[in-house]
């Protein structure tokens, strides 16, 4: 489904040097990281990335010996104005859409920001969002905006 994006998650131990290595491996393969987020605890972390060619990136990371998981996420347009996020979250609440985590893209267009969401049920979430006229940005459109 084109509305669903693929995100790569990498398991990292929380110790010096573990962040640069996967990024360097992707860089050496000519893969640009569109956006990322780091979830961490005292002992380990999860690096989450969105890249254009996720299959190639996954291969590179697996070959480098990392544990990689592919997760479905959804990109949503959020008005860059007071109340933009609040209205969006209200839609989630009305639709009982459960958010596991979220992080932004740096790209902004015509006064609208882009956020990335991980829902417990991405397909149901997309349906509910579209029914509420929330602008979900699909894969093709997203990478066009990001200049790929």
């Amino acid at each position: 489904m084109l509305m669903i994006l693929k995100q790569l998650s990498i398991f990292l131990e929380n110790k010096p040097g573990t962040l640069s290595a996967p990024c360097r491996a992707l860089a050496d393969a000519g893969i640009n990281i569109q956006t990322f987020a780091l979830a961490d605890t005292q002992k380990f972390g999860i690096l989450r990335l969105v890249v254009h060619e996720w299959e190639k990136a996954r291969r590179v990371l697996l070959d480098g010996g990392w544990t990689v998981k592919v997760t479905d996420v959804v990109a949503i347009e959020v008005p860059d104005a007071p109340g933009g996020l609040a209205s969006l979250f209200e839609v989630f609440e009305r639709g009982s859409i459960n958010v596991e985590y979220m992080y932004p893209f740096t790209a902004k267009q015509e006064g609208k920001g882009l956020m990335l969401f991980r829902f417990d049920d991405p397909d149901a979430a997309v349906k509910a969002l579209q029914a509420n006229k929330v602008s979900v940005v699909g894969t093709v459109e997203l990478f066009k905006r990001l200049g790929n």
């Binding site: 398991f11 605890t41 989450r48 998981k69």
Partner: peptide
């Protein structure tokens, strides 16, 4: 070692 089978994408899952 965290293998692909064990690895869940969330901190809560790993904990």
């Amino acid at each position: 070692e965290v293998t692909a089978e064990l690895f869940s994408d969330t901190v809560g899952g790993l904990e």
